[in-house]
Design a protein around this nucleic acid. Structure first.
Lengths: 333, 333
DNA sequence: AAGATGAAGTTTTACGTATAACGTCCGTGG
DNA sequence: CCACGGACGTTATACGTAAAACTTCATCTT
């Protein structure tokens, strides 16, 4: 038979459709007798009744569903953000639908085609400015994670203190004695990476004898390896420390260093960022900055729930943590 | 103002709601004049009209949305499956909603809470048998990827020739001269891994002098490292080749081998499976088996579309490819 | 001229649910 | 003995869309 509706359940239980809705919606105290309620529940169970979500959504005018837009799935940072967001959502009887932007950090092309149900709000993580044009156009409540706080189209922002992370990392290397730095920067025009570059430059002001070179690298291991090789074989004194914008680039940098016959960390120190699973999968394990990814997801979802409640969410920068592992050491020379 | 409805558009354009539906649904040839159609389109554009998906879904009784259930997001195999499935879906005006099972390959707990819209079908990838209880209960068309073909509750199966992959890998090692093998098997009770073990045992029958030991390892780099250390320091002659159930385990095995002061591949060969991004991120790059992940997603979505059309999909095992990199070599002794 | 055809719409209905508004029966206080 | 309010339901309606069925009017055919 076709899928049973609440009317079918009503008929089976010998009551009206309204009574079924009341009982199953848990709104029946004082309106329906316990005996009848139990009869309705039994009928629903027997028929295998599952409410039609489309009808419910139409009636209620809300879907209790939120879209989470992420640039990539291969990065476990976003997987952890999702986990956090989904946990908070579930606690409030919300669902989270994931939309991995096919273009990475670039424009998110019609995410609504993916989530075909109506949405109550959107959370976007680490997306480049201007990448969310049609999301803004839908005038849904939007919470941005790890994105430019100056973007006022978002109802709320949840950010991590990236600048402090890069400051800690740079000072860690400075205190080890490093003075010649190479910054392998992600070749993506996104706030999250711009902040890193600024923080490095800022931290190096305290060390007037330090030199900094910057090379741009794609966000893939192999692309980053090529970029690192290029930078490390360029003329001039070789850097003793390579600061990478994320762990993936760092993994590429490590490969490049070894290809040149150098050792990590004895000859060159390499640092990552994000503390992805990759950071401890490679050898040596990367000194990196741990992001509170699940917390970011939780806060993001929390902020969105606040907005949906008409309240004003407050934003604070979440703290990061320097994790020192085996890829950094004092320079040999 | 509240979100405009088709009725608002109709009023603005001076026509009936039905006319709006016809025009915007592209069903107006011979029913509405070009001039009126253009007026309707202009009104819709001006008001920023976006159809209410819940209402449309209710009316049509179908959501053109499919749920893809995967055990994990950190694994780029599943990201690629999603990419393939989403591509085919988009071409047929379907959407794909992703549900990452919070328990990994274990039971998928109420995936429908995540996708709160009604669904037309479900694709499940690499899930353990019995993990999809409530999905089966929803009696939606179900396509299983990389799962036990004997499971008849699925309307269709899409599988990769894993057995052939493990056969190729084992023969590759045999032809290099290896005879003492360690199999680092995933400690998960899932078809996809059971097949691998069988295939290794089968392939080794052609080499009567070969010995095989099996150790179970969790699907994490660190867990696998511990398991590998345990197995490699056990009494008896040390294996010369470590066959791992997937690349993550292989990464852990590599770490263990190096911890013991041994070199890869000179002292011990290590092989992976899946050809994840991780396989080329580690040093040395892993000899592994490449899975046609996107193709799996495409075929899965294609099969589901066939089922939804009432047609009978056919299943064939997709071919895999041995990728020889730097983690395998002839044994030294 | 009478009917047929077709274009260009409109009116109406159904999808399944949640809930406001409305009965009905019965025990009870005044 | 009558009004009254609770307990226990039912009836009716709205959500926004798609599409079947219907209307109107001008043109074409014979």
């Amino acid at each position: 038979m076709a899928r049973p509706t609440s009317k079918d359940v009503a008929h089976a239980a010998g009551v009206s459709q309204a009574a079924v809705s009341l009982v199953l919606g848990d709104k029946w105290r004082g309106r329906v007798s316990e005996a009848t309620a139990e009869r309705v529940r039994a009928a629903a169970r027997d028929l295998g009744y599952r409410p039609n979500l489309a009808a419910r959504n139409l009636r209620l005018g809300s879907t209790r569903t939120v879209l989470l837009v992420v640039p990539a799935l291969t990065n476990d940072f976003f997987a952890r953000v999702y986990t956090g967001a989904a946990r908070i959502a579930a606690a409030h009887d919300f669902g989270v639908v994931l939309y991995p932007s096919p273009d990475g950090i670039g424009p998110a092309k019609d995410p609504f085609a993916s989530a075909r149900s109506a949405l109550d709000g959107v959370i976007a993580s680490s997306m480049a400015a201007g990448a969310l044009a049609d999301i803004r156009g839908a005038d849904l409540p939007l919470v941005m994670l790890d994105s430019d706080p100056a973007d006022t189209t978002a109802a709320a922002h949840v950010n991590v203190d990236l600048a402090d992370g890069m400051r800690q990392m740079t000072e860690h290397l400075l205190s080890l004695g490093h003075r010649r730095f190479l910054h392998l920067a992600a070749d993506v025009d996104s706030w999250t990476f711009a902040v890193r570059a600024d923080a490095i430059a800022h931290a190096l002001r305290t060390a007037p004898d330090a030199t900094l070179r910057t090379e741009h690298a794609p966000l893939t291991v192999h692309g980053a390896r090529a970029a690192a090789e290029r930078a490390l074989t360029a003329s001039g004194p070789r850097p003793t420390a390579v600061i990478c914008d994320d762990d993936i680039i760092a993994a590429g940098a490590c490969k490049a260093v070894r290809r040149l016959g150098l050792r990590i960390p004895e000859d060159i120190s390499v640092t990552g960022f994000d503390d992805l699973a990759l950071a401890t999968a490679v050898d040596p394990e990367l000194t990196t900055i741990r992001m509170p990814a699940e917390l970011v997801g939780e806060r993001g979802m929390g902020a969105l729930l606040h907005v949906l409640d008409g309240k004003q969410p407050q934003s604070d920068a979440l703290p990061v943590e320097l994790v020192v592992r085996d890829s950094t050491a004092p320079p040999s020379a």
